[in-house]
Amino acid sequence: MAQFLLFLLYFFIVITIIQVIYYALLFGKFSFSKTQENKATNNPISVIVCAKNEEENVSNYIPLLLKQNYPNFELVLINDASSDETLEVLEGFEKNNANVKLIKVENNEAFWGNKKFALTLGIKSATHDNLLFIDADCYPDSENWITEMSSQFSEQKTIVLGYGAYEKEDGLLNKLIRFETLLTATQYFAWAKFGKPYMGVGRNLAYKRQEFFNTNGFIHHMKIRSGDDDLFINEAATSRNTAINFNPESFTYSKAKNTFRDWIMQKRRHISTAKNYKLFDKTQLGLFFASQFLFFTLSILLLLFQFQWMIVVSIIVFRYIISWISLGYAAGKLYEKDVMYYYPILEIMLIFTQLNVFFRNIFSKPVYWK
Rank of each mutant, 00 (worst) to 15 (best):
F7W: 12
L9P: 08
Y10G: 07
F11A: 06
I18F: 15
Q19R: 14
Y22R: 08
Y23Q: 14
F30Y: 14
S33C: 12
K34S: 13
T35P: 14
T35V: 06
Q36V: 10
N38A: 08
N42E: 14
N42A: 05
I45G: 00
I45V: 15
S46G: 10
V49G: 02
V49A: 04
A51Y: 11
E55S: 13
N57D: 11
V58C: 14
S59N: 10
N60I: 05
Q68M: 04
N69C: 07
F73L: 01
F73K: 12
F73C: 02
E74R: 02
A81W: 05
S83M: 10
E85L: 11
T86D: 11
E91W: 03
G92S: 15
N99P: 08
V100G: 02
K104A: 07
E106C: 07
G113Q: 12
G122V: 10
I123H: 00
K124L: 01
A126D: 03
L132S: 03
N144K: 00
W145C: 04
T147Q: 15
S150G: 06
S154T: 04
S154C: 03
G162Y: 01
G164L: 08
Y166S: 02
N174T: 01
K175L: 01
L176S: 03
R178S: 02
L182H: 03
L182C: 11
A185R: 05
Q187I: 12
Q187Y: 12
F189K: 10
A190G: 14
W191E: 13
M199C: 07
R203Y: 13
L205W: 06
R209S: 01
T215V: 08
G217D: 03
K223F: 13
K223D: 10
R225D: 11
S226V: 09
D230M: 05
L231R: 13
F232T: 02
I233Q: 05
I233S: 05
N234R: 08
A236E: 13
A236N: 05
A243T: 04
N247W: 11
N247V: 12
Y253N: 02
K255N: 15
A256I: 08
N258I: 09
N258A: 03
D262R: 10
M265C: 09
R268K: 00
F280H: 12
Q284F: 13
L285G: 13
G286H: 03
G286D: 09
L287N: 08
F295P: 02
T297C: 07
L298V: 04
L301T: 15
L301A: 15
L303D: 10
F307Q: 00
F307G: 02
Q308V: 06
M310F: 15
V312W: 00
S314V: 07
I316F: 07
I325L: 13
S326T: 05
G328Y: 04
Y329P: 12
Y335I: 06
K337V: 04
V339K: 01
M340K: 03
M340P: 00
Y342N: 02
Y343L: 01
P344D: 01
P344S: 00
P344N: 00
P344F: 01
M349N: 01
M349P: 01
R360A: 06
V367K: 12
W369G: 09
